[in-house]
Design a protein around this nucleic acid. Sequence first.
DNA 1: CGGAGCCCGTAATTCGTATTACTGCCTCTG
DNA 2: CAGAGGCAGTAATACGAATTACGGGCTCCG
Lengths: 354, 354
Amino acid sequence: MSAGRGRLTQNEIARMAGVSQTTVSLVLNNRCDAAWRIAPETRERVLRVIRETGYVADPLARRLLQQHNQILGVFTYESVFPSTSGNFYHPFLSGIEACAESIGCDLLLFTSAPVSGGSRRIFHDNNRIRLADGCVLLGREIPRDELARMVAEDMPFVSVGRRDDAYLPSGKGGPVPHVGADYAQATAALVHRAVDLGHRVMAYVGAGDGPESAIDRLAGFTAAVRETGVDGRHEPVGGRTRAELLDALCSARVTAVFCEELVEAVAMAEAARARGLSVPGDLSLLALGDPTEQAETDLDFTGFRIPREDMGWQAIEVLDDILHGRISDHQRLLPCELVEGETLDAPGPATGRN
Amino acid sequence: MSAGRGRLTQNEIARMAGVSQTTVSLVLNNRCDAAWRIAPETRERVLRVIRETGYVADPLARRLLQQHNQILGVFTYESVFPSTSGNFYHPFLSGIEACAESIGCDLLLFTSAPVSGGSRRIFHDNNRIRLADGCVLLGREIPRDELARMVAEDMPFVSVGRRDDAYLPSGKGGPVPHVGADYAQATAALVHRAVDLGHRVMAYVGAGDGPESAIDRLAGFTAAVRETGVDGRHEPVGGRTRAELLDALCSARVTAVFCEELVEAVAMAEAARARGLSVPGDLSLLALGDPTEQAETDLDFTGFRIPREDMGWQAIEVLDDILHGRISDHQRLLPCELVEGETLDAPGPATGRN
DNA sequence: CGGAGCCCGTAATTCGTATTACTGCCTCTG
DNA sequence: CAGAGGCAGTAATACGAATTACGGGCTCCG
């Protein structure tokens, strides 16, 4: 079939049915014109040959003319099915697949993109993005210039995860369509909850910088701290060991620690335990989102859950809207679900004992 | 870019560089002829325009002529990222992705295939398999007629999991290329181990029928039992409750039970516990492979591990071989790794006490 | 000085399908 | 009986890139 010579084409079908290629095409696509342009018997004859041979139109040739082919690209800046990222991307893909299925689209995974400088690049000299009608971008961090170029070149796409506007040096570019998680809101909600429980001194541990997801978390933390009037400090880990970091936090009388990453929270819990501090008795620990890396722990952290599956689904929805010129909200932030957990409690009397 | 009018084509590039489309093509593909056919300065001029515009050849048009486009299809008979199947397919995809990346191919997931009668079908009236150079088939059970048709139509493909030869009613068809797990060998090894420990009466619980994977397990069991001369019976669950099944096993003085599915093993362990039997003290339980469904248990079952990631990888390898006409082993069975676990022990003195 | 041979490139064709424009033929009507 | 109009279909073209075949201008040599 796809193999060389004996390839089944519309011409071949036409020859067998004794009609022209045009007729085959008309019958095949069941064009509204065909109903009254092609005699029922001719139509039937063509259909029979098609059935007998099992012919299907070459999607390539079709797409060449029609400019769309029901294929959506999925570009991941990290490996899609990595063992290292502990299936962090899995739920996104789950949602993407489910929605793609519901709208009858195939998915093209750009696994061929070469890795350069630690991450993949969309625009390399043999890229195939244009094979897809549009695409979905997945990854913690996506180079600004690539986003800008996508916008500038009118390539329909949606980012999974909020992205800032992106512009090329030339000034071309603009807002980036995305479906993100509302980290700021979720983090702020956790701060409020901590304040309600009586916490007055808290810290944000993590870079709070780089990818939008980190920036948003810190922003939510900062805003909520300001709003409630409590003491909130930002503690980038820097070169410090967890023990040193814990020292700093204790001497500042911090009672609640917001960890950007779950791995970070796990490490902090470990350090606290080593020092004889109980969690959450002596120290409350909050994990801002699902684990992006494998982390071993038996603690059920208080924090929030990223609506990953839903984000994947809606990303495809937005992409579909864009492709069909439907105006809808092309920048969405979905609420995160708070996780009760067992690592947040009222600050104990032991708080100031350091 | 992909959007309508302003589309960047070779013709456009040619116009800008003041050359012909042919020249652009030659330069772009760096044809060996081009080196001495195109003047360096012309070549440079074209390259500059290409760089400035960021032009890349439309893979569709390219494929239309060349008959291959570095895209491998992945067809799954169950949903690829299902929550129900407990990530059973994940490792396969991991291997597939990794190998595809290594040979520079993109992956096309046929998510658009409609579900009819509980499972998807490759050959529906809008299928797009031909977009791919070849494809990989994934699923516990794959309709024989679809396999036969793939063979008959010379569509390059590889099944993940052993498959019997497949023929169409017309007689067309043949052997199915596959990369499977050697369930027979692994199951037989477990039987031998049980026999070495002193077991003399054992049972195979499960259908032992239907998909090749079930057939192979039972076959391995049967062969090993015959070879060692012990008593081995096949117990399809049938309509029985676990308790009834356990009754039957006990009264037959079975000391080791080989469960086709891990869920089955979990259920048996549950039933044994309910009846006051200890595992493996009173009854040894073997799980023949990784869980295909979500199963909650704290038991570490003795059994074997399916080399899923490796199977995915090698499936792509074989596909690549086929596509390049390399003759290699197109039907491979990979060994499973035995898992020590804690549910197999020598038959206790309590054995006959029922 | 004529033509063989090279250099640098271009026109034309190809892939398989969709679409547009057209062409015979028949019938009906004024 | 000429011409309008419907019917049933076909020829021609387009899509974008690769390839084949060709061509115009120059040099060099007999």
